[in-house]
Design a protein around this nucleic acid. Sequence first.
RNA 1: CGGGGCGUAGCGCAGUGGCUAGCGCGCUUGGUUCGGGACCAAGAGGUCGCAGGUUCAACCCCUGUCGCCCCGACCA
Length: 568
Amino acid sequence: MKWTESLISTLREDPKEAETISHKLMLKAGLIMKVASGIYNFLPLGWKVVLKIVNIIREEMNKAGAQEVLMPILSPAELWQETGRWSFYGKEMFRVKDRQDKDFALGPTHEEVITDMVRKYVNSYRQLPQILYQIQVKFRDEIRPRFGIMRAREFIMKDAYSFDKDEENAKKSYQRMFDTYNKIFSRIGFKFRAVEADTGAIGGTSSAEFMVLADTGEETIVYCPNCDYAANVEKAEGKIEKKGGNAGEKLEKIHTPEIRTVEELANFLKLKPEDTAKTILYMADGGMIAVMMRGDREINEIKLKNAIKANELRLATAEEIVNKTKAPVGFAGPVNLKEKGIKLYIDNSVAEMETMVCGGNEKDYHYSGVKRGRDFKEDKIIDVIKIQKGDFCPKCGKELSEQKGIEVGHVFYLGDKYSKAMNATFLDEKGKSKVFVMGCYGIGVTRIAAAAIEQNYDENGIIWPVSIAPFEVVIIPVNMKYKEGTDFAFKLYEDLKEKNIDVIIDDRDVSPGVKFKDSDLIGFPIRVVIGEKNFKNGKVEVKLRKEKQAEVVEKEKVIDKIIEGLKG
RNA sequence: CGGGGCGUAGCGCAGUGGCUAGCGCGCUUGGUUCGGGACCAAGAGGUCGCAGGUUCAACCCCUGUCGCCCCGACCA
């Protein structure tokens, strides 16, 4: 590509609408353009990046024996109603009506559509397993789209679905996809990690997320430096240090005016936060429940939601709390809670405490010396504490660490959730009708582009990995009027194209600084500069974007040097 | 949905109840320059988000509305 013939439009100043690195750089480098909130045009450079990502994914999926299909963007409400997701998915699903007033969804994911396809065409165990995938636009009306294409409302996803005759084989398919994902992300050049994850709206029994490691990531990963345990903090389990639980032996009611937080309470009573237990009130599927955990720790609501098998969970409002407990927010406690008709769950950490301070269910009162069993009785002991750095690995017991990540892939072992709901069956060896055992596997294609930037940038711009760079090499003739130099530059350009190297030549008649700034900003992995002084000595400069130092090489050796650079 | 902020040229911003709305960058033309966002000269480009109101007069004041960004709730 010649720069003068391309639609490349870089910005000199930071776009004000962007805050995060990748968003800012993608706009500044002219990769994407916003059309509406969470909706973007991919400009030529940006689309080249996406296509390179797509190619890698497609190659690896095909190698793994998966077959590509294409499902429609629109899907009829009936399919979603079969699994109940028409109502369950809520406002996040874009819905439209056709001229007959029939309901359709813009596909946020395609389990229903693919299951419908497979139940129609697969009738025998002999046709199994099947792994089908597509690379398609997805629509999700995110509550708050942000960070450019990182969390967009319209985005490209590779979604795959496996169908097997039984659990054993389904687990093999799951493993095959897991391995394929490792290959894909390695090929792209990511520093990444697969972690245990919550299954969220897709459902199923187990899942793993592939996280690109970047300090700017939205997700927190808890991992063990000693063994292979790693999990999204949403899902993470662990042992927490047993401490505290010394709040006197005798149950005493204490006047604690205006004291609502654990911090205030501990200071007031000259105890430690871990000697207290906090009680949080939630509305779970319409009814109020109470959850207790040790005072110094935070709750993980996702773990809670799963532990109590709630569909809908939210904090109780101040009004609901007063109505039900007769005490204002901040004074909830386990003593006499049963009489108010509130189910009590306690975290493991509370079960370990000898005695504790708790809210008194009365304005300005707490109890000290509260003993489990004597002063209250829980309905169930569960694990709801948010695991953090310094807690102990559930597998090997060593201390856990934390890091930030960006979710780019997610594999789910689904089981029969969708096949059962949609009555998707086949005949087994014995002629018996059985439902498919499924898995589903997503990769955020467009998100990968943003994640790659979050992981690879400096103060001058993007540093693309070679695998997905918009061009592998940029050739910069410093002065277009210096004929010998530009002649060589164009010759080199043709030679590289001949060798199937993805190259662009910056043939603009602008000052050198502009070319250097733009090439750093866009982040081409290799830059070849042809300047008059060097060229008169038969030399040109080759610089890797990721290195500080450029190298001056004989002009005859430049192609070898480039090829070497592309490998490294 | 709650909190905060912003809509003026392609981008980043300034501006005043009054006459022709500015600046920088970018863009066009001509010339000089050529290793880190060069310089000179001459240009093009605006329903001041939209609607209504107040006023002799509104980009500016008032009301409404739409859009966008950030934080939170939420989220494969």
